[in-house]
Amino acid sequence: MALLLKGELRSKLQAELPAALDVRWANQATAPETAEHAGALPVLIEDDAVVHAAQIVPVAHFLRDTLGYDYLSNITVVDYLAFSIMELVYQFYNTTAGGADVRVRVRIGRTPEACIVPSLSPTWPGANLQEREAYDMYGVVFPGHPNLARVYMWDEFKGFPMRKDFPKTGDKYTHVTGE
């Protein structure tokens, strides 16, 4: 399987799985000029492929079976508080051809109803611990995950520590002592 060029993933998805592409982000390709905004703006580069949360599993399978990107390296969650979205970045690599990665993004809201992404783990077990970490740290729920429990914090912990609105100093679990 050949490597994808920049931007090719979007066109391939448009051709094969048009329902997957999340068109809300299709026309927002702007590089912000200043850093005055609170938090970074999500930058939509031309080779980006933003897909609907519900379609991530078919897209991942498409990448693996049809395009040969069989190694899922990373699932990262980035919390853009200023825009009230959370972005999940999936990075796939092609082990036979080597080369650079392909990034698939999913953008979901931050409320408990919106923060749901179907789990890749039943068919792609490598996503197991990464999704647990995403749940533990950010509160993203992955229905279909065999064991969606916390991985770093203890099980009874309340709150999602890496979210931007989680207080960095002092919460109900730590005593803030005077310096």
Partner: peptide, 20 residues
């Protein structure tokens, strides 16, 4: 985000993923 601190910093740790 253009400032001196990272906005998001994530470590892809091999031992963690290998434990899957």
């Amino acid at each position: 985000d253009g400032t001196g601190n990272a906005y998001r910093y994530k470590v892809r740790a091999p031992s963690f993923i290998n434990l899957t």
